[in-house]
Design a protein around this nucleic acid. Structure first.
Ligand SMILES: NC(=O)c1ccc[n+]([C@@H]2O[C@H](COP(=O)([O-])OP(=O)(O)OC[C@H]3O[C@@H](n4cnc5c(N)ncnc54)[C@H](O)[C@@H]3O)[C@@H](O)[C@H]2O)c1
Ligand SMILES: NC(=O)c1ccc[n+]([C@@H]2O[C@H](COP(=O)([O-])OP(=O)(O)OC[C@H]3O[C@@H](n4cnc5c(N)ncnc54)[C@H](O)[C@@H]3O)[C@@H](O)[C@H]2O)c1
Lengths: 212, 212
DNA sequence: TAACTTTTGTGTACACTTTCACAAAAATAG
DNA sequence: CTATTTTTGTGAAAGTGTACACAAAAGTTA
């Protein structure tokens, strides 16, 4: 689709810029320079301009960027100019926290369906309005029918690869994984890992060595 | 303590190697080459050797690495040869999930104290055996007394910086932050961000552009 | 219209990370 | 004891991302 390789960090910074721009818009700021934006989100101004340059020219020399315009451009670039339905697999402790999190809506995401291999009262209660709970055996059918492309995996690590294989078969293209295992997926499917164990251990290293 | 600059990615890979080594030990594997370990955890063998080389020589040429020894060496290097007490701030949806997570123990971490500005029955019930719940106003006193160095922040984003300032004053040196804000901390304090909004948006970009 | 100011967009240099490739070391076989 | 095999540890090359620095563009002032 695009001719060259855009680094993944660039994309995550775009997301960061987007958040800053939303804040600026709420504050009533209409125009911002890369220098000011950089200060606000802790990124080098040249880096911001380089990141944007992957996608085109969005600023006005001598002026800066129009907050509203840049925000809309970034949303379009990232595919965030529409709502995305998300599937959640695993309505355990973590899954329930995710279901009750209101912040996703603000980003344009909606967990519209949840799956678990156990369906009990506790889990039914955890599922909010506008989200349906199904038994894990229904995964492929439901996801396929709803054409959902993004899923969150919050099952025990021993089940994660099995679940992911099923998700991929169902047409899922992006997976946010909380289980502490490296998952294998075919080309064309993106996985991002949230690994709290590793995060805590990295912190420990730096705290322990008392440097920096 | 050590002369150099070790990249943060190296540290997170060490943590990954550690996890693989634990699995290998359970499987009864006694010796492993960088090639095999690399295949197991999806890292280039030369990378593994380079990562280890920051800290010394751990292998035997022509043989490989003794699983048990390397595991112990890595634990020592990362400061994981002892238990770490962790403080949790914010016993909301996410905080409760973290409190009930059994996986931290396996890594040698223990959430031994939790704080919230609201203390009610629901929150009291969420706190397991071996963990104490205090009002947020007690934070500095309790953390100082217990000499806790690592904290997890799971409060609303509007409170996060305030909480972090208090944590730093209490002697906390490492912070795992779930609130969607860039935190400012003095030198000597390490912060790692878990930002689910950004993670989902990055996924969306790749899914949306249908490339990789 | 011309001089001046501001800030972008980008070529280039720099820094950091990963991978390659091979000598050195250790074990094993003859 | 020497040759052979294996696999580490590491210098150098390749690759990738970041930051600098400045010409080009747009606006502003006179
Ligand atoms: N809870 C946390 O704070 C936390 C922190 C870090 C990592 N994690 C990881 O997140 C994952 C979930 O953690 P948790 O604490 O919610 O665990 P949990 O045991 O409370 O919940 C897991 C849920 O997944 C369901 N499940 C299991 N296999 C399934 C399958 N094949 N299909 C559908 N549903 C299935 C279970 O019925 C259960 O409801 C684990 O991999 C864990 O390591 C959790
Ligand atoms: N729940 C999720 O799945 C999820 C996902 C992504 C990010 N987050 C982020 O994690 C944070 C917590 O999310 P949540 O869903 O648990 O929110 P929540 O509102 O359920 O819980 C927040 C808790 O923090 C407490 N709190 C607020 N200010 C405090 C203070 N100054 N000192 C001590 N305690 C205080 C509140 O009383 C409440 O119990 C938020 O910043 C949120 O953006 C949560």
């Amino acid at each position: 689709m695009r001719k060259w390789k855009i680094p993944e960090v660039t994309i995550s910074r775009l997301s960061l810029y987007l958040r800053c721009l939303s804040e600026l818009e709420e504050e009533g700021v209409e125009v911002i320079s890369s220098a000011e934006l950089g200060k606000k989100c802790g990124i080098n101004p040249a880096q911001i301009r380089k990141d944007l340059a992957y996608f085109g020219e969005f600023g006005t020399r001598g002026v800066g960027y129009y907050v509203k315009d840049l925000k809309e451009d970034l949303k379009r670039i990232m595919g965030l100019d529409r709502e995305w339905e998300v599937a959640l697999v695993g309505v355990g402790n973590l899954g329930r926290a995710l279901l009750s999190y209101q912040g996703f809506k603000r980003h344009g995401f909606k967990i519209s369906v949840a799956f678990d291999k156990v369906i009990d009262e506790e889990r039914k209660k955890a599922v909010p309005e506008g989200c349906e709970l199904y038994h894990a055996s229904m995964m492929e059918e439901v996801i396929r029918k709803k054409k959902i492309k993004i899923a969150i995996v919050a099952v025990h690590f021993s089940e994660a690869q099995r679940v992911v294989d099923a998700l991929v078969k169902s047409g899922i293209k992006g997976i946010l994984n909380f289980a502490p295992v490296r998952l294998s997926v075919p080309k064309g499917v993106v996985v991002r890992h949230i690994d709290l164990g590793i995060e805590l251990e990295v912190l420990t290293f730096f705290v322990n060595t008392k440097m920096y």
